[in-house]
Simulated assay, not measured.
Amino acid sequence: MIYRNFAICTLVAAPLIVLAVQSLLPKPPETAPTQDVIADAPPPPVPMPVAPPVAPPSAAASAPDFGQPMTEAGQPMLAPGAGLPGTSAAPMVDTSQSFTPGKAPPGSPNGE
C-alpha cells in the first residue's frame, strides 16, 4: 500500500517539479532573423571533375599465382588422432545402493 501511494505521488509531483524548475531557469533571448541573414545564401557547389574510365586488366594480370593448394586443404582441423581421443568418455552410471531403476530413492516425494 505504501509503495502504491509513493508511486502515485511521484507521478503527480514529477511534472509539477519540472514545470517549476523550467519557470525559474533563465531563458535564452529570442532574436528574429534579419533580412541580411536570409539574403546571404551559400554559393552553388563546384562541380567535381569526372575521371576517365579505367580499362579492365588482362586475365593474366588479374589472377595472381599462389602455387599449388595446401596439402591439408579440405581436411577437418580437429580429427581423432590429432590431439583428440579416439573415442568419447565412458557413460556415467550411478552404481550406488540408494538408486535403482525401478524404485525411487528413500526420502524423495515418490519414495514409499
Results as ranks from 00 to 15, higher is better:
Met1Thr: 15
Met1Gly: 15
Ile2Lys: 06
Tyr3Asn: 09
Arg4Ile: 11
Arg4Met: 10
Asn5Leu: 14
Phe6Met: 00
Phe6Asn: 05
Cys9Asn: 09
Thr10Glu: 04
Val12Lys: 00
Val12Leu: 12
Ala13Pro: 01
Leu16Lys: 03
Leu16Arg: 00
Ile17Phe: 05
Leu19Ser: 12
Gln22Leu: 15
Ser23Ile: 01
Leu24Trp: 08
Leu24Cys: 11
Leu25Ser: 01
Leu25Ala: 14
Pro26His: 04
Pro28Ile: 03
Glu30Phe: 12
Thr31Arg: 06
Thr31Asn: 07
Thr31Phe: 02
Ala32Thr: 12
Thr34Ala: 04
Thr34Arg: 09
Asp36Cys: 01
Val37Arg: 01
Val37Leu: 09
Ile38Gly: 00
Ile38Ala: 13
Ala39Ser: 13
Ala39Leu: 10
Ala39Asn: 14
Ala39Cys: 04
Ala41Val: 02
Ala41Gln: 02
Ala41Ile: 04
Pro42Glu: 03
Pro42Thr: 00
Pro43Leu: 05
Pro45Arg: 03
Val46Ile: 10
Met48Asp: 10
Pro49Tyr: 06
Val50Asp: 14
Ala51Ser: 06
Pro53Tyr: 05
Val54Tyr: 03
Val54Gly: 02
Val54Trp: 01
Pro56Gly: 06
Pro57Ile: 10
Pro57Cys: 05
Ser58Gly: 11
Ser58Cys: 09
Ala60Leu: 07
Ala61Pro: 00
Ser62Met: 09
Ser62Tyr: 06
Ser62Asp: 15
Ser62Pro: 03
Ala63Thr: 15
Pro64Cys: 02
Asp65Cys: 01
Gly67Ile: 04
Gly67Cys: 04
Gly67Asn: 02
Gly67Thr: 03
Gln68Phe: 11
Pro69Ala: 15
Pro69Arg: 08
Thr71Met: 06
Thr71Trp: 12
Thr71Ala: 15
Thr71Cys: 06
Thr71Arg: 09
Ala73Cys: 07
Ala73Arg: 04
Ala73His: 00
Gln75Arg: 13
Pro76Tyr: 07
Met77Ala: 12
Pro80Phe: 09
Pro80Asp: 09
Gly81Phe: 05
Gly81Ser: 08
Ala82Thr: 14
Gly83Met: 04
Gly83Gln: 08
Pro85Met: 08
Gly86Ala: 11
Ser88Glu: 13
Ser88Asp: 15
Ala89Glu: 13
Ala89Met: 10
Ala89Gly: 13
Ala90Phe: 15
Ala90Gln: 12
Ala90Pro: 03
Pro91Asn: 04
Pro91Arg: 00
Met92Thr: 11
Met92Asn: 13
Met92Trp: 15
Val93Phe: 07
Val93Asn: 04
Thr95Met: 15
Thr95His: 10
Thr95Trp: 10
Gln97Tyr: 12
Gln97Pro: 10
Gln97Met: 14
Gln97Arg: 08
Ser98Val: 15
Ser98Pro: 08
Phe99Asp: 11
Pro101Trp: 13
Pro101Ile: 11
Pro101Lys: 10
Gly102Arg: 01
Gly102His: 03
Ala104Gly: 12
Pro105Ile: 06
Pro105Val: 11
Gly107Arg: 02
Ser108Trp: 03
Ser108Gly: 03
Ser108Pro: 12
Pro109Tyr: 09
Asn110Trp: 13
Asn110Ile: 10
Gly111Ile: 00
Gly111Trp: 14
Glu112Tyr: 05
